[in-house]
């Protein structure tokens, strides 16, 4: 099943990148630098989305005491951490030409940085504890505590209207972006989503193999 997700991710990114560079027009204000949006926004969306899914699995693991949930949460964390780093990295490279600075202690940037620390905390905590099941539980508690940070990131531009731009894509209002720009960005977001599923499925298989040697024989 994983190859399907990986193949669709590749296909979507090729089409998405084509739209991003060859169809979407130059931005009247930012010129070409706005094209970073085609990976900055999908990476940021995925960093939050993966965290919620991870916390969901972790929570389920705590409640139902199912082994697989803990493994799924741990399979997602590295990819989520990577997208958080990428959101910060592409944001900094976009901020430099448009805001004149790599970093500013803006509400959204700061809460996204906190998200990165939460991921790193989850990864190191679960890696540090010898007993896998206890590690899953400890990780789950941390993940659930950190969930409150996600709405903070999302609404940070509304609550404290600091430097970061408000949401240009929302389900209620008409998109404030040129359609081709929007299409390119949504294609890339879908591509990143398919990629994350493929990565998580691959990683959970190796986690299962490690933890359940007898079950792994039939995997």
């Amino acid at each position: 099943m994983m190859p399907w997700f990986l193949a669709s991710s590749l296909l979507l990114s090729i089409v998405g990148l084509y739209v991003a560079f060859f169809v979407a027009p130059t931005d009247f204000q930012q010129g070409e630098s706005y094209r970073i949006i085609f990976i900055h926004v999908p990476a940021a969306w995925m960093s939050m989305f993966i965290y919620l899914v991870m916390a969901g699995w972790a929570g389920a693991g705590l409640v139902f005491n199912t082994r697989l949930s803990g493994m799924m949460a741990r399979a997602l964390a590295p990819t989520g951490a990577m997208f958080t780093f990428l959101a910060l990295w592409t944001g900094a490279l976009w901020g430099k030409p448009t805001w004149g600075t790599w970093w500013v202690w803006d509400a959204r940037l700061t809460s996204e940085l906190i998200l990165l620390f939460l991921y790193i905390g989850f990864l190191s905590l679960t890696a540090a504890i010898e007993d896998e099941r206890r590690a899953d539980r400890a990780g789950a508690v941390l993940a659930l505590v950190g969930v409150v940070n996600i709405p903070i990131i999302y609404f940070s531009v509304v609550w404290w209207n600091t430097l970061h731009q408000g949401a240009s894509v929302s389900l209620k209002s008409a998109p404030k972006m040129a359609t081709t720009m929007l299409i390119g960005m949504l294609l890339m977001a879908l591509a990143f989503w398919m990629y994350s599923i493929a990565a998580a499925l691959l990683r959970v298989r190796s986690i299962i193999r490690e933890r359940e040697p007898r079950a792994a024989a039939e995997v």
């Binding site: 010129g31 070409e32 630098s33 990976i39 990577m82 592409t90 490279l93 030409p97």
Partner: peptide, 20 residues
């Protein structure tokens, strides 16, 4: 050249591609 923003645009895309 990407309208003079080549460093920033390609710096973002290259690192993203590398990581993924």
């Amino acid at each position: 050249a990407m309208g003079g923003y080549g460093f920033y645009v390609w710096g973002s895309f290259a690192v993203t591609l590398l990581c993924m």
